[in-house]
Design a protein around this nucleic acid. Structure first.
Lengths: 339, 339
DNA sequence: ATGAAAGCGCTAACAC
DNA sequence: GTGTTAGCGCTTTCAT
């Protein structure tokens, strides 16, 4: 079976390519093409299983209806949910997404940026690992709409979608404080990571507002991993100055910490309280469902799509903006009042 | 900044498009193009941040270096891991993936198939919800390489990548039996789902081999959801003929069942044993790490990529084949010997 | 050692 | 009411 093009149909129906194109794009009324011709064309197109060649279209109209999405780890529920929302929002607008997984590899991130540009994507949603503008400004140079996600890059003006990490963390820690906790641990990600720094700032602020001092060994930066959460929790709980509560800076850390707590023979929330950053399915499924700070993933996705779509209108010259979204405090059952 | 094409560079260096193309594709030695010209072209291309237009290339060479991947739910760890492996394998081969999430919506699945075809993807990896060949045979008609995943479609000859559901389940149930369990529950997915039927067949076979009879109310088909697992477990455990062990047919069911067991005030594995189908990160993070049947996701992904790549060679006429991969029994700590 | 020309499939400006 | 033509950016055959 050979693949049908406009020309194939044109030849059979004995009209020109243009006529076929007009009919198949539902523009035939505007051009006053006769019902009869239109019908013939439409039915032939069906017979031949005609499907438009989008590559040819792209070349012609300089638009690919494709958005590139670069994430750090698609298996992280944070990103997979995000991708789901982005995909779904774009699908309704007629766009597809090319997904790029960097696995926290800078070279791969840069490779992907180049590939996406060579594919002339209509926009890029990027959750970058790189901190410098060096490799990223090429996107701007090419005038490709860009939504930066979950991460601020120094001195790089762009449209950002962020979450109020500091306020969110404060809310979490305030909650623990209000329950009488004073020995509250901060288990964080990489100490150079901006999100981590902001979350830590929220932690500090909450403590200081409550006139609690920062205990140095209660602050453990490290990495956003299960392992780090586990080790931090077990070490502290086995020390001779065990805390009563934990704040864990992301979804993996919190799981590790929970496991660590249980492995120390302690129960949540009876013996130890914990609040995590990020909401995710498993959080609800643990023996004691976790109280968490939820990032508004759906909103973040819709905002990113929205920005991209509006920037595609080249007459749109509104300055870049940062959209800072509020987190949500989800009270479940992993904390307890103490005295 | 206006975007550079081959012509732009050709004009500046005062050579033809062809020469530029040859140089930029590293074919200039084959054509004996002078070092000097080549150098000039290469350096100009850099200056102008030239990036090849893949849409034009696709149109010309009838190849898009794009693979479409259609999954049911990208937030399911099963699929997100799969996508990760597929993406990574294809990245090294110079391919990108367009990800399509159907959300178990048949119309969306068909929509996506059409879109992928119109984009002339070089191959499709599909985990279909549809059971009939009606909408899917169009892929074959167009000669687009197809790898079907996790699912067999009646009377549709294609390259399948499957897992030995029956043997895997048998292994799980055998393990429970060997520990002395006789009251073993099967919590399954949709009863019309083929995978579910095969897993159930494995369950039956294991029991009958051990000369245990099937207890009707110990078999609960339903859906692959947390809710179903939870409800099935709690109902049975509160009945007056409570089981001692569970087999849960996928990752979500098993989490639901675990939660149900705990909410009944019982402990895993002390009071109740459980084995699940699917391995996933959270399985290791539960209070008692779950013993599971792991699907070889990486292998499945590599096989899918492999099939696609080999089918792209149009001279390859080897008949379609089904690759049935073995599952792996992962012993952790969610079962216990009883007497 | 390099160029000219054709053509991939499509749309749109212009023609009649 | 419909056709002609040009051109998007690229590769490739055939010339020279």
């Amino acid at each position: 079976m050979t693949i049908a093009t406009l020309q194939t149909i044109a030849n059979i129906v004995k009209v020109s390519r243009s006529t076929v194109s007009r009919v198949l794009n539902n523009k035939w009324e505007d051009f006053g093409i006769s019902q009869a011709t239109a019908d013939k064309i439409i039915s032939k197109a069906k017979d031949l299983h005609y499907i438009k060649n989008e590559a040819a279209l792209s070349l012609r109209v300089k638009k690919t209806f494709t958005i590139g999405v670069i994430v750090k780890d698609i298996t992280d529920p944070f990103y997979s949910q995000l991708v789901k929302f982005v995909e779904s929002a774009l699908y309704t607008k007629g766009y597809n997404i090319i997904i790029c997984n960097t696995g926290y590899d800078l070279d791969k991130e840069n490779g992907h940026i180049n590939i996406l540009l060579s594919r002339w994507v209509d926009g890029i949603i990027l959750s970058p690992i790189q901190k410098s503008i060096e490799n990223i400004s090429i996107i701007k140079d090419r005038n490709v709409p860009l939504a930066l996600f979950d991460c601020k890059i120094d001195k790089f003006e762009a449209d950002y979608i962020l979450v109020d990490n500091k306020a969110g963390t404060m809310e979490a820690v305030n909650h623990l404080i209000s329950q009488g906790h004073k020995k509250i641990v901060y288990i964080g990600g990489n100490s150079s990571d901006l999100n981590n720094r902001l979350r830590y700032a929220g932690y500090k602020k909450a403590l200081s507002k409550a006139s609690l001092s920062i205990t140095e060994h209660y602050v453990i930066h490290g990495s956003y991993t299960f392992k780090h959460g586990y080790e931090a929790a077990t070490e502290l709980l086995r020390s001779n100055d065990a805390p009563t509560a934990f704040f864990a800076a992301n979804n993996r850390i919190v799981l590790g910490a929970c496991k660590g707590i249980m492995d120390c023979g302690l129960q949540i929330p009876e013996d130890v309280s914990i609040v995590g950053f990020d909401d995710f399915e498993t959080a609800t499924m643990l023996p004691s469902p976790l109280t968490v700070i939820r990032q508004p993933l759906r909103d973040m996705a819709l905002n990113a799509v929205d920005i991209l779509l509006s920037r595609m209108d080249k007459t749109n010259n509104t300055p870049c903006m940062t959209r800072m979204l509020k987190t949500e405090f989800i009270l479940r059952n992993s904390t307890r009042k103490i005295n």
